[in-house]
């Protein structure tokens, strides 16, 4: 794991690093610390990062811009901040967890568990960050009809017919997407509210039709979950 700690108070940054090392041990490939947003941006441009531990208020600057940048990359983010009132917004941006300061080792462990897929995911996400040229933009999750895994990243197919490339993996997305999105295939996650119908096509083949007429395949072993959810 390549971890970036963004924190403007050196003793705290040092403490987070010590805690992270003691919790993730050999999973860590490297840990870097950035004291300013500018340092963090510079680092993100040069180095691939798997997990960013980010303070939202650095030297009077708002960390949301950096958060958008991090989340538009194939990275995940955990916020460690004293600004607990910003937790809801952070979750809407799609962060893995929000750890309020002062934190305990146990609380940090819980956040890492979420990142590693061991804990329950967040269900409050409202936006997805993506890059368009050099600009980081936000996409409202509810406007997405389905996500499709491509060879490298993921394509979001919007209800209005547009298609947006997200620098994420489908597994990462599955962990952070809110309720109402279901993985129906190894390459597809669908917005349930956009499903028109689904049926068994024989020979263990299942198919789903969206309200706009698009057909999507359903994995055999994911069909029961879909069936259960839509019946409910």
């Amino acid at each position: 794991m390549r971890i970036l700690i963004v924190e403007d108070e050196p003793p705290i940054a040092d403490y987070i690093e010590r805690c992270t090392r003691s919790l993730l041990k050999e999973k860590i490939r490297r840990i870097d610390v950035a004291y300013t947003l500018e340092d963090a941006r510079r680092h993100l441009r040069k180095q691939a990062v798997d997990l960013c531990l980010l303070d939202l208020n650095l030297s009077g600057s708002d960390g949301y811009d950096l958060l958008k940048q991090v989340l538009a990359l194939p990275s995940q983010s955990i916020i460690i901040s004293a600004y607990a009132e910003k937790a809801i917004t952070a979750f809407e941006y799609g962060v893995i967890d929000f750890v309020p300061k002062p934190f305990t080792l146990k609380r940090l462990q819980k956040a890492f568990d979420r990142y590693l897929g061991k804990g329950p995911g967040s269900s409050q996400m409202k936006f997805l960050a993506y890059r368009l040229g050099s600009e980081n933009r936000l996409l409202a999750v509810e406007t997405v009809a389905f996500f499709k895994a491509t060879r490298v990243f993921v394509e979001a197919y919007l209800q209005d017919g547009r298609k947006i490339l997200l620098e994420k993996h489908l597994n990462q997305l599955e962990r952070i997407l809110p309720e109402g999105f279901l993985r129906i295939h190894r390459s597809y996650i669908v917005n349930i509210s956009h499903v028109g119908s689904y049926r068994h096509c024989g020979a263990s083949r299942y198919r789903l039709q969206l309200k706009d007429g698009t057909f999507l395949p359903i994995s055999r072993y994911r069909y029961p979950a879909l069936h259960h959810l839509l019946k409910k």
Binding site: E9, P11, I12, D14, Y15, N57, A82, Y83, A84, P100, K101, P102, F103
Partner: peptide, 15 residues
Amino acid sequence: QPHFIMNTLQSIKSF
């Protein structure tokens, strides 16, 4: 308010 205190407490905890 909490921001200032929490950050300071976190610093204390770090030390």
